[in-house]
Amino acid sequence: MTLRAPSAGAGAGRNWALLALLALASLAMAAPLLWTLLLSLKSNGDLLRSTRSAFSPPYTLQNYSDILGHSAVFGWLLNSTIVSLAVTLGVLALSSLAGYGFARLRFPGRAVLFIVLLFGLAIPEQSVIIARHQMFSALNLHNTYRGLILPGLAAPFGVFLMTQYFRATPRELEEAATLDGASRFKIFWRILLPLSLPAQATLGIFTFLSTWNDYWWPLISATDSDMYTLTVGVASSQMNFAQTNGLGYLMAQAVFASAPILIVYVIFQRYIVAGVSRAAT
């Protein structure tokens, strides 16, 4: 092991204790996931008798083939993807523009507006949701993609992040371009935007994940099953009285619904880690 942070020195006993602690935490982390996977591979009948059967064969892929045949999961995944991507792209565009404006250009009211924005950071989504629901009702926006996407664009976090980032970027490059007579938008577009890629990645990941996991707003806005996002769709198929598709099927649905984003995560893990890392600096 080549450690970056110092670790050598202390006694081996302490190291073992720490390792054991880490192993325990990893187990706590992984066990629920494995349990879900096992349950999804059992027939509903077996599970109804006892979930303990999940620890031993026979296993089956029946639940998964049932999903492939008849499930609404695909629609939910599509909706979640459309909404999350649109919110992410929208936030990136709005935040970069505004971040550049706040960081580099002087205009009347800039300081006051930025302070208002900082206050905006502390406004929880949940505290405006009732009023927002009323507003969207009046505008006829419920059960549309617009209705799901627009609220996600309002969070000031992105503007704050991009402003900080642009402020920390050295001015020399821009000054050269200014002397060449480039317009402000051109400078932003050609020079600062490419430089801000790491911050964009960070913001994009944050935004995508939080939109993907949003629950309350789609629950009251996307009430038409055609517009269900993944969170709402999975909720609608749970906790139904009397007969349901069965536990194994539900668990398979959970695995199936999580698979795409987990795969994306595994592929982009390195960038996500790097991206999230940059947010802290």
């Binding site: 049932d66 045949g69 008849h70 609404a72 009285f241 009397a242 598709n245 099927y249």
Partner: peptide, 8 residues
């Protein structure tokens, strides 16, 4: 309500 059973 009454649940989802599209699999079956």
């Amino acid at each position: 309500f009454f649940g989802a059973c599209d699999a079956e």
